[in-house]
Amino acid sequence: MFSFCADPSVLPDWQWMACYLTTGSHFALYRSVLVVLLLLALAAPLALGMGFLGALAVRSGNAALRGVGTVYVSMVRGIPDVIFFLFVPFAIDQGVEFLRHKILCPDWDQPIRQGNDFIVCQAAKMPLASDPAWMHDVWGFTLALIAFALVFGAFAANTLNGAMNAVPRAQLETAEAYGMTQGQTFRRVLLPQMWVYALPGLSNLWMILTKATPLLFLLGIQDVVFWARELGGQKTGHYAYTHPDWRVWYFLGVLAFYLTLTWVSQKVFDRLMVRLNHGQATAGGEALRKAPA
Protein backbone atom coordinates (compact mmCIF):
# COMPACT_ATOMS: atom_id res chain seq x y z
CA MET A 1 0.00 0.00 0.00
CA PHE A 2 2.52 2.60 1.17
CA SER A 3 5.99 2.86 -0.30
CA PHE A 4 7.70 2.25 3.04
CA CYS A 5 6.01 -1.11 3.55
CA ALA A 6 8.65 -3.18 1.77
CA ASP A 7 10.13 -4.84 4.87
CA PRO A 8 7.67 -4.88 7.78
CA SER A 9 10.16 -6.37 10.25
CA VAL A 10 12.20 -3.16 10.51
CA LEU A 11 9.39 -0.58 10.57
CA PRO A 12 8.68 1.70 13.55
CA ASP A 13 5.36 1.13 15.30
CA TRP A 14 3.03 3.56 13.58
CA GLN A 15 4.32 2.75 10.12
CA TRP A 16 4.08 -0.96 10.87
CA MET A 17 0.46 -0.46 11.91
CA ALA A 18 -0.35 1.59 8.82
CA CYS A 19 1.13 -1.10 6.60
CA TYR A 20 -0.47 -3.90 8.59
CA LEU A 21 -3.94 -2.42 8.35
CA THR A 22 -3.65 -1.96 4.59
CA THR A 23 -2.55 -5.47 3.60
CA GLY A 24 -4.51 -7.40 1.02
CA SER A 25 -6.12 -9.59 3.67
CA HIS A 26 -7.24 -6.52 5.62
CA PHE A 27 -8.83 -5.16 2.48
CA ALA A 28 -10.65 -8.48 2.28
CA LEU A 29 -11.96 -7.73 5.78
CA TYR A 30 -13.13 -4.29 4.71
CA ARG A 31 -14.75 -5.77 1.61
CA SER A 32 -16.53 -8.32 3.77
CA VAL A 33 -18.39 -5.42 5.41
CA LEU A 34 -19.84 -4.78 1.96
CA VAL A 35 -20.82 -8.44 1.72
CA VAL A 36 -22.82 -8.07 4.94
CA LEU A 37 -24.46 -4.87 3.68
CA LEU A 38 -25.19 -6.49 0.32
CA LEU A 39 -26.85 -9.42 2.02
CA LEU A 40 -28.97 -7.01 4.07
CA ALA A 41 -29.88 -4.97 1.00
CA LEU A 42 -30.98 -8.07 -0.92
CA ALA A 43 -32.43 -10.15 1.90
CA ALA A 44 -34.69 -7.38 3.23
CA PRO A 45 -36.79 -6.89 0.07
CA LEU A 46 -36.81 -10.64 -0.63
CA ALA A 47 -37.99 -11.38 2.89
CA LEU A 48 -40.63 -8.68 2.54
CA GLY A 49 -41.79 -10.29 -0.68
CA MET A 50 -41.90 -13.72 0.91
CA GLY A 51 -43.69 -12.17 3.85
CA PHE A 52 -46.27 -10.62 1.57
CA LEU A 53 -46.97 -13.96 -0.10
CA GLY A 54 -47.05 -15.63 3.31
CA ALA A 55 -49.48 -13.07 4.71
CA LEU A 56 -51.74 -13.41 1.68
CA ALA A 57 -51.63 -17.20 2.07
CA VAL A 58 -52.53 -17.00 5.75
CA ARG A 59 -55.47 -14.68 4.95
CA SER A 60 -56.53 -16.63 1.90
CA GLY A 61 -60.04 -17.98 1.49
CA ASN A 62 -58.58 -21.23 0.23
CA ALA A 63 -58.15 -23.66 3.12
CA ALA A 64 -55.20 -25.48 1.57
CA LEU A 65 -53.33 -22.25 0.93
CA ARG A 66 -54.14 -21.07 4.44
CA GLY A 67 -52.77 -24.33 5.80
CA VAL A 68 -49.52 -23.99 3.88
CA GLY A 69 -49.11 -20.39 5.05
CA THR A 70 -49.80 -21.26 8.68
CA VAL A 71 -47.43 -24.23 8.70
CA TYR A 72 -44.70 -22.11 7.09
CA VAL A 73 -45.07 -19.30 9.62
CA SER A 74 -45.30 -21.50 12.69
CA MET A 75 -42.49 -23.83 11.64
CA VAL A 76 -40.03 -20.98 11.46
CA ARG A 77 -41.35 -19.85 14.82
CA GLY A 78 -40.72 -23.17 16.51
CA ILE A 79 -37.27 -23.93 15.11
CA PRO A 80 -34.13 -21.88 15.79
CA ASP A 81 -33.02 -19.95 12.71
CA VAL A 82 -29.50 -21.44 12.86
CA ILE A 83 -30.90 -24.85 12.03
CA PHE A 84 -32.48 -23.44 8.88
CA PHE A 85 -29.22 -21.75 7.95
CA LEU A 86 -27.32 -25.01 8.31
CA PHE A 87 -29.90 -27.15 6.58
CA VAL A 88 -31.62 -25.11 3.85
CA PRO A 89 -28.57 -24.16 1.72
CA PHE A 90 -27.34 -27.75 1.78
CA ALA A 91 -30.74 -29.19 0.91
CA ILE A 92 -31.33 -26.70 -1.91
CA ASP A 93 -27.86 -27.28 -3.32
CA GLN A 94 -28.31 -31.04 -3.51
CA GLY A 95 -31.94 -30.69 -4.58
CA VAL A 96 -31.05 -28.44 -7.50
CA GLU A 97 -28.22 -30.70 -8.61
CA PHE A 98 -30.51 -33.71 -8.36
CA LEU A 99 -33.17 -32.06 -10.51
CA ARG A 100 -30.67 -30.82 -13.09
CA HIS A 101 -29.20 -34.29 -13.17
CA LYS A 102 -32.60 -35.84 -13.91
CA ILE A 103 -33.28 -33.33 -16.68
CA LEU A 104 -29.85 -32.94 -18.26
CA CYS A 105 -28.55 -36.49 -18.02
CA PRO A 106 -31.48 -38.86 -18.60
CA ASP A 107 -29.13 -41.57 -19.92
CA TRP A 108 -27.20 -41.79 -16.66
CA ASP A 109 -27.29 -45.37 -15.42
CA GLN A 110 -25.29 -45.13 -12.21
CA PRO A 111 -26.79 -44.41 -8.82
CA ILE A 112 -26.48 -40.83 -7.56
CA ARG A 113 -25.51 -42.01 -4.13
CA GLN A 114 -22.52 -44.33 -4.28
CA GLY A 115 -21.77 -45.16 -0.70
CA ASN A 116 -21.11 -41.78 0.83
CA ASP A 117 -20.59 -39.98 -2.43
CA PHE A 118 -23.23 -37.76 -3.96
CA ILE A 119 -22.52 -38.00 -7.66
CA VAL A 120 -24.33 -36.22 -10.42
CA CYS A 121 -23.16 -35.85 -14.00
CA GLN A 122 -20.80 -32.97 -14.76
CA ALA A 123 -23.45 -31.06 -16.68
CA ALA A 124 -25.71 -31.05 -13.64
CA LYS A 125 -23.17 -29.48 -11.31
CA MET A 126 -24.29 -26.20 -9.89
CA PRO A 127 -22.31 -24.20 -10.80
CA LEU A 128 -20.32 -26.17 -13.38
CA ALA A 129 -16.83 -27.25 -12.31
CA SER A 130 -15.48 -25.27 -15.24
CA ASP A 131 -17.10 -22.05 -14.06
CA PRO A 132 -14.77 -19.44 -12.62
CA ALA A 133 -14.38 -19.19 -8.86
CA TRP A 134 -16.58 -16.11 -8.55
CA MET A 135 -19.55 -18.08 -9.90
CA HIS A 136 -19.09 -20.52 -7.02
CA ASP A 137 -18.98 -17.63 -4.59
CA VAL A 138 -22.13 -16.11 -6.07
CA TRP A 139 -23.92 -19.45 -5.86
CA GLY A 140 -22.90 -19.88 -2.22
CA PHE A 141 -24.10 -16.37 -1.48
CA THR A 142 -27.38 -17.01 -3.29
CA LEU A 143 -28.03 -20.09 -1.20
CA ALA A 144 -27.42 -18.07 1.96
CA LEU A 145 -29.73 -15.38 0.64
CA ILE A 146 -32.50 -17.90 0.03
CA ALA A 147 -32.15 -19.22 3.58
CA PHE A 148 -32.35 -15.70 5.00
CA ALA A 149 -35.35 -14.80 2.84
CA LEU A 150 -37.13 -17.99 3.89
CA VAL A 151 -36.63 -17.46 7.62
CA PHE A 152 -37.28 -13.75 7.69
CA GLY A 153 -40.11 -14.07 5.18
CA ALA A 154 -42.00 -16.07 7.80
CA PHE A 155 -41.34 -13.36 10.38
CA ALA A 156 -42.47 -10.67 7.95
CA ALA A 157 -45.59 -12.63 6.98
CA ASN A 158 -46.71 -12.53 10.55
CA THR A 159 -45.98 -8.82 10.95
CA LEU A 160 -47.78 -7.91 7.73
CA ASN A 161 -50.76 -10.08 8.57
CA GLY A 162 -51.03 -8.32 11.93
CA ALA A 163 -50.77 -4.93 10.26
CA MET A 164 -53.52 -5.77 7.78
CA ASN A 165 -55.75 -6.80 10.65
CA ALA A 166 -54.97 -3.56 12.46
CA VAL A 167 -56.30 -1.24 9.76
CA PRO A 168 -59.62 0.05 11.21
CA ARG A 169 -62.65 -1.80 9.86
CA ALA A 170 -64.42 1.51 9.30
CA GLN A 171 -61.88 2.46 6.66
CA LEU A 172 -62.56 -0.70 4.70
CA GLU A 173 -66.31 -0.43 5.12
CA THR A 174 -66.23 3.14 3.85
CA ALA A 175 -64.31 1.98 0.81
CA GLU A 176 -66.92 -0.67 0.14
CA ALA A 177 -69.65 1.92 0.58
CA TYR A 178 -68.02 3.95 -2.15
CA GLY A 179 -68.49 0.94 -4.39
CA MET A 180 -64.88 -0.22 -4.58
CA THR A 181 -64.30 -3.84 -5.45
CA GLN A 182 -62.36 -6.08 -3.07
CA GLY A 183 -59.20 -5.65 -5.12
CA GLN A 184 -59.60 -1.89 -5.19
CA THR A 185 -60.18 -1.78 -1.44
CA PHE A 186 -57.04 -3.82 -0.92
CA ARG A 187 -54.88 -1.72 -3.20
CA ARG A 188 -56.22 1.75 -2.44
CA VAL A 189 -57.13 1.57 1.22
CA LEU A 190 -55.71 -1.45 3.02
CA LEU A 191 -52.26 -1.45 1.44
CA PRO A 192 -51.40 2.24 1.93
CA GLN A 193 -52.73 2.29 5.47
CA MET A 194 -51.20 -0.91 6.76
CA TRP A 195 -47.63 0.34 6.53
CA VAL A 196 -47.88 2.55 9.57
CA TYR A 197 -49.04 -0.43 11.58
CA ALA A 198 -46.42 -2.66 10.04
CA LEU A 199 -43.48 -0.32 10.48
CA PRO A 200 -42.72 -0.95 14.15
CA GLY A 201 -42.76 -4.67 13.48
CA LEU A 202 -40.76 -4.35 10.29
CA SER A 203 -38.15 -2.09 11.83
CA ASN A 204 -37.80 -4.66 14.57
CA LEU A 205 -37.44 -7.34 11.93
CA TRP A 206 -34.73 -5.35 10.21
CA MET A 207 -32.87 -5.25 13.51
CA ILE A 208 -33.20 -9.01 13.96
CA LEU A 209 -32.05 -9.52 10.37
CA THR A 210 -29.05 -7.25 10.93
CA LYS A 211 -28.12 -9.15 14.03
CA ALA A 212 -28.47 -12.48 12.22
CA THR A 213 -25.94 -11.59 9.51
CA PRO A 214 -22.90 -12.90 11.46
CA LEU A 215 -24.43 -16.35 10.93
CA LEU A 216 -23.19 -16.05 7.35
CA PHE A 217 -19.96 -17.30 8.87
CA LEU A 218 -21.59 -20.66 9.58
CA LEU A 219 -22.54 -20.93 5.92
CA GLY A 220 -18.89 -20.82 4.88
CA ILE A 221 -19.12 -17.27 3.58
CA GLN A 222 -16.15 -15.06 4.32
CA ASP A 223 -17.93 -12.37 6.30
CA VAL A 224 -16.62 -10.02 9.00
CA VAL A 225 -16.64 -12.76 11.65
CA PHE A 226 -14.58 -15.04 9.42
CA TRP A 227 -11.98 -12.37 8.80
CA ALA A 228 -11.90 -11.22 12.42
CA ARG A 229 -11.08 -14.77 13.45
CA GLU A 230 -8.64 -15.34 10.61
CA LEU A 231 -6.71 -12.09 10.99
CA GLY A 232 -6.87 -11.97 14.78
CA GLY A 233 -5.21 -15.33 15.33
CA GLN A 234 -1.55 -15.52 16.24
CA LYS A 235 0.72 -14.95 13.25
CA THR A 236 4.04 -16.77 13.33
CA GLY A 237 7.15 -16.20 11.27
CA HIS A 238 5.48 -17.72 8.22
CA TYR A 239 3.71 -14.38 7.87
CA ALA A 240 5.29 -11.02 7.08
CA TYR A 241 3.41 -9.29 9.89
CA THR A 242 3.82 -11.31 13.08
CA HIS A 243 1.68 -10.64 16.10
CA PRO A 244 0.25 -12.56 19.09
CA ASP A 245 -3.42 -13.45 19.47
CA TRP A 246 -5.36 -10.24 18.76
CA ARG A 247 -8.78 -11.73 18.32
CA VAL A 248 -10.31 -9.84 21.21
CA TRP A 249 -9.51 -6.53 19.44
CA TYR A 250 -10.87 -7.71 16.13
CA PHE A 251 -14.10 -8.85 17.72
CA LEU A 252 -14.31 -5.53 19.54
CA GLY A 253 -14.16 -3.94 16.10
CA VAL A 254 -16.92 -6.23 14.79
CA LEU A 255 -19.01 -5.37 17.84
CA ALA A 256 -18.53 -1.66 17.17
CA PHE A 257 -19.49 -2.16 13.52
CA TYR A 258 -22.77 -3.81 14.42
CA LEU A 259 -23.57 -1.26 17.14
CA THR A 260 -23.10 1.52 14.58
CA LEU A 261 -25.23 -0.31 12.05
CA THR A 262 -28.15 -0.80 14.44
CA TRP A 263 -27.82 2.73 15.80
CA VAL A 264 -28.01 4.29 12.34
CA SER A 265 -30.92 1.99 11.42
CA GLN A 266 -32.81 3.11 14.49
CA LYS A 267 -32.38 6.78 13.57
CA VAL A 268 -33.63 6.11 10.04
CA PHE A 269 -36.67 4.24 11.29
CA ASP A 270 -37.54 7.00 13.75
CA ARG A 271 -37.57 9.49 10.87
CA LEU A 272 -39.59 7.15 8.68
CA MET A 273 -42.20 6.69 11.40
CA VAL A 274 -42.71 10.44 11.60
CA ARG A 275 -43.25 10.63 7.85
CA LEU A 276 -45.60 7.68 7.70
CA ASN A 277 -47.70 9.06 10.53
CA HIS A 278 -48.70 12.04 8.40
CA GLY A 279 -52.40 11.96 7.64
CA GLN A 280 -53.04 8.67 9.43
CA ALA A 281 -56.04 8.00 11.58
CA THR A 282 -53.83 7.12 14.55
CA ALA A 283 -52.65 8.84 17.68
CA GLY A 284 -49.32 9.53 16.01
CA GLY A 285 -51.00 11.11 13.03
CA GLU A 286 -53.23 13.18 15.27
CA ALA A 287 -50.23 14.44 17.23
CA LEU A 288 -48.55 15.53 14.00
CA ARG A 289 -51.75 17.28 12.82
CA LYS A 290 -52.08 19.22 16.06
CA ALA A 291 -48.43 20.10 16.28
CA PRO A 292 -47.78 23.70 15.22
CA ALA A 293 -46.54 23.55 11.67
Binding site: V225, Y258, L259
Partner: peptide, 10 residues
Protein backbone atom coordinates in the same frame (compact mmCIF):
# COMPACT_ATOMS: atom_id res chain seq x y z
CA UNK B 1 -27.60 -3.39 19.41
CA UNK B 2 -25.08 -6.12 18.67
CA UNK B 3 -25.49 -9.74 17.57
CA UNK B 4 -25.43 -12.39 20.26
CA UNK B 5 -23.13 -14.45 18.06
CA UNK B 6 -20.48 -11.72 18.12
CA UNK B 7 -21.01 -11.18 21.84
CA UNK B 8 -20.13 -14.83 22.41
CA UNK B 9 -16.89 -14.48 20.47
CA UNK B 10 -15.90 -11.24 22.11
Amino acid sequence: GSPLFVQFFF
